[in-house]
Design a binder for these strands. Structure first.
Lengths: 211, 211
DNA sequence: ATGGCGTGTCAACGCTCGTTGGCCTACAGT
DNA sequence: ACTGTAGGCCAACGAGCGTTGACACGCCAT
């Protein structure tokens, strides 16, 4: 509607072309920052506009002015680029470990992914956004590794299940053993799993084990 | 399917001559059933007492009478026994596949686990309940497979991450490829992963690949 | 019959939420 | 100096929530 969402891109993307800097840009950014914080910590329903506004140091009505409504604010707050590396340039046997490392760093760089996961679990809009990111950002990578489209879909879903599962245990549920693991420990355990899911042979059907 | 266990789980082993069957037992069970439905579909905050009551066909105040408050209702609704099989009686090499199969069936038998996972993602109480179930019902199994307690903790967390991750993708986020997979397909892919996490060799530290 | 208890309804409370509209202030363009 | 506008605050709204207390019915033992 007001096309203001473009303003938030400057945080990550630093686009130099003639961007008419408005005085409100800082406020907009502060709102987004606070929104990500609250969504990540509390999920969609418990993250209130009032609290987000207070954390950003402005009035709740400003949030409405800049983002229309709560749903619009959420959409702007979780716009996210996974920045998936191009697997073309990576030795195939290192794809698994590399991906785990990449996700760990993406996950801990800010609160966006935690917000997305937390909201995706209870909010239809959040779930749809997760599916969208999976479809547009993770699946293409599997397509590049496997010629068969359906198999690539399965493989990428398997990889997603392991990566999201670890993120869930570590950043959302905060299961103590998962929280305590180091990055390298996680890479060593999960890397081979992701590797097998994306590039390993499809598992054979069960070799008849009725007895 | 048996609504009998839903009633308090207090008086149902064997048959005590005096069955203090109350006329309200059916109502209590209906409330729990509706509560699990709503918690599983909407999470904690969006599942309202009023809606649960309407689905159970009674007045909201009945819910309060029988379960005290919303939090008490939740606790009663997600009381859950994973019914983990004793790994002692299972060929060690089949532990992974067996566990995946077991979880799939536990997950699809009713809505309790989905409710738990969905709520655990946004509600502190729900997260604590998930940690409790992990600690008391899943971890002991790993303890039985590994002599070292700390290693068992790590291993069981890894297994949990993969199982919960698949459940998240399949039952909560409903990622299409994960939803479309058959049980056997899931077992064939995830079984070896769980097997390795629980019984495989610990992965070696990286063989020096600084370059 | 009668009184108590178990089961249920109804109406209302206090609260918080998302959202709205009016008003104030600083300042840039004329 | 005047005025339009962008940036901001404030007070209020209607709705929905969890929760409460008073009350009504039907059953049993008295």
């Amino acid at each position: 509607m007001d096309g203001a969402e473009a303003a938030q891109g400057e945080e990550q993307r630093g686009d130099p072309p003639e961007a008419p800097r408005r005085r409100s840009d800082e406020t907009r950014a502060a709102i987004l920052r606070a929104a990500r914080d609250r969504f990540a910590a509390d999920g969609y329903e418990r993250a209130t506009i009032r609290l987000i506004a207070r954390e950003a140091g402005i009035d709740p009505s400003m949030v409405m002015r800049y983002y229309g409504n709560k749903s619009g604010l959420f959409a702007a707050a979780v716009e996210f680029d996974l920045k998936m590396p191009d697997v073309y340039y990576i030795p195939r046997r290192h794809v698994g470990a590399m991906l785990v490392r990449h996700f760990l760093s993406r996950w801990e760089q800010d609160e966006t992914l935690t917000a997305l996961l937390r909201v995706g679990a209870t909010n239809p809009e959040g779930a749809e956004e997760m599916r969208r990111i999976f479809r547009t950002q993770l699946r293409p990578l599997a397509d590049e590794l496997s010629p068969d489209a359906e198999e690539a879909a399965t493989r990428s879903a398997l990889a997603a299940s392991q990566i999201l599962g670890m993120a869930l245990c570590r950043y959302v549920l905060q299961l103590p053993p998962a929280v305590d693991m180091s990055h390298e420990e996680i890479v060593r355990w999960l890397g081979p799993t992701i590797q097998r899911y994306l590039t390993g042979d499809a598992p054979p059907p069960p070799p008849d084990e009725a007895g």
